[in-house]
């Protein structure tokens, strides 16, 4: 199925006769294919969300059910738990494509690998980062997060997890060829997540205290823009290393 996906892509591009169209067609094809494959494995898709909810459940039990205390630490807890949930799903980002050889097909495609891997990361964010962001307000209620900060929580998570997916994909691409890449992946990726965590929690805390949140969101957006520019090249280079090595 994966092989047959790339063939019509190439011919469609030739038929259109313009290289730009060729690339767009290839990206759309990759997007569609990845979405289809991910939606077929709904259980795997739900795992990060269940993990997120479970970790959030552990904190009141481990710390205290006192709403005032929980409200104080809720922004940080929600962000850290969402970050770990996003991390958990990273290992499978390239794993199955690596195992069945379709990653090699992607590399052989005439289109730049950076653009195609960006499409793959976009699907990953759409199916993990975005659901996590949408689910966070519900868990915020459970942690007694003050009203009025829910929208900012979801927004900061949606922006932040996109950066997390991009940065994490570099680590996932570097470790996909390794048998025991899982723990190594967290060691590589978590230090790079820290700026996103700082500004993500900062945004929610600012919303709780009623301060301006635009600065935080703007910085999250800047981080995302930077990641969008640099990460695809690093992901492509890392995939080449993992496959040729």
């Amino acid at each position: 199925m994966q092989v047959s996906d790339t063939a019509p892509v190439a011919s469609a591009g030739v038929a259109l006769g313009e290289p730009g169209g060729n690339l767009m067609v290839a990206i759309t094809a990759t997007l569609k294919r990845d979405l289809t494959l991910m939606l077929r494995r709904r259980g795997e898709m739900l795992n990060p969300l269940v993990f997120f909810a479970l970790v959030i459940t552990l904190f009141p039990i481990g710390i205290s059910p006192d709403p005032e205390l929980l409200a104080l630490i809720a922004p940080g807890l929600l962000w850290v738990a969402a970050l770990l949930a996003a991390l958990l799903s990273l290992d499978s980002l390239f794993r199955s494509d690596y195992d069945d050889g379709s990653l090699e097909q992607l590399m052989l495609a005439p289109q730049p690998l950076a653009a195609l891997s960006l499409a793959k990361v976009a699907v990953h964010w759409l199916l993990t980062g975005l659901p996590l962001a949408l689910m966070a307000p519900v868990l915020g209620i459970m942690l007694a997060l003050p009203a009025g900060s829910y929208l900012i929580l979801a927004l900061s998570l949606a922006l932040g997890t996109a950066s997390l997916s991009l940065i994490g994909a570099i680590g996932a691409a570097l470790t996909v060829g390794l048998a025991k890449g899982g723990v190594l992946l967290s060691l590589l990726v978590l230090p790079l997540y820290i700026p996103v965590l700082i500004f993500g929690t900062g945004a929610v805390q600012a919303a709780v205290f009623g301060d301006g949140v635009t600065a935080h969101l703007a910085i999250l957006g800047a981080l995302l823009a930077g990641a969008l520019i640099f990460a695809p090249w690093a992901i492509a280079a890392s995939l080449r290393i993992s496959i040729n090595g």
Partner: peptide
């Protein structure tokens, strides 16, 4: 591979 991966990281 080790050299190139470490360089990228």
């Amino acid at each position: 591979s080790a050299s190139r991966a470490a360089s990228v990281l």
